[in-house]
């Protein structure tokens, strides 16, 4: 555990809590892509199956459980409790365009051809692209509430901090996880355009982020 890794995990947790509380307190999921949230729930489910096979640390187990519970609770809020506010019209990204290639890649490129390893690889690849329905929705409607942009900022920051963690681990332990690093770089690149808009419009402006 190093400072980048810890900061990354905290950033990830903050992002998920921000989104959950936003929906819970406003009793509305307007502007939130339910599809992205289902994909994230799928990411955690397929990655954390090792909860049943290995014990790493109390920190590891607790964080995994928190991520799982919060991701399913968020999906529940969007599709059940506050489904009246769900904007299915604008959440029109075709997720099969992500799921099919990601599944195929996970079978082709993995550390071992075993169910758990393939599912782990699937989760890493899927996480890299899971935010696309949300970004697509913002592009389509042309705006995002500032609280939604804070969520996206912390979610993007988390993987960027993991990149720093991997650089650190490579130099201190010689640790290099090719699948995670390549996917992590791709994932972070998807947020770069958003980071720019976040700094120039949300932080300097305040209020909604609207696209030209």
């Amino acid at each position: 555990m190093n400072i980048f890794r810890l900061a990354g995990d905290v950033s990830h947790l903050v992002a998920i809590i921000i989104l959950f509380l936003k929906i819970w307190k406003s009793k509305s999921c307007a502007g939130i892509s339910g599809k992205s949230q289902v994909l994230f729930a799928l990411v955690f489910t397929s990655r954390y199956l090792d909860l049943f096979t290995v014990f790493i640390s109390a920190y590891n187990t607790i964080m995994k459980l928190v991520f799982l519970v919060l991701s399913y609770a968020t999906v529940y809020l969007i599709y059940m409790r506050f489904r009246g506010s769900y904007d299915s019209e604008n959440d029109s990204f075709r997720v099969e365009f992500l799921l099919v290639p990601v599944t195929g890649l996970a079978f082709l490129e993995n550390y071992a051809f075993t169910p758990l390893e393939i599912l782990w690889t699937f989760s890493i690849f899927l996480e890299a692209v899971a935010i696309m329905p949300q970004l697509f929705m913002i592009t389509k409607t042309g705006e995002a509430e500032s609280i939604t942009t804070h969520y996206l900022f912390f979610l993007g920051l988390y993987r960027a901090l993991y990149l720093a963690n991997w650089v650190w681990r490579y130099h201190t332990e010689g640790f290099f996880d090719q699948i995670a690093v390549v996917s992590g770089v791709v994932q972070t690149i998807f947020y770069c355009d958003f980071f720019y808009l976040y700094v120039t419009r949300v932080l300097r402006g305040s209020g909604k982020m609207s696209l030209p």
Partner: peptide, 10 residues
């Protein structure tokens, strides 16, 4: 090995 080691990350 790398297969086991990456599992300590979230």
């Amino acid at each position: 090995t790398s297969q086991i080691k990456h599992k300590d990350e979230l």
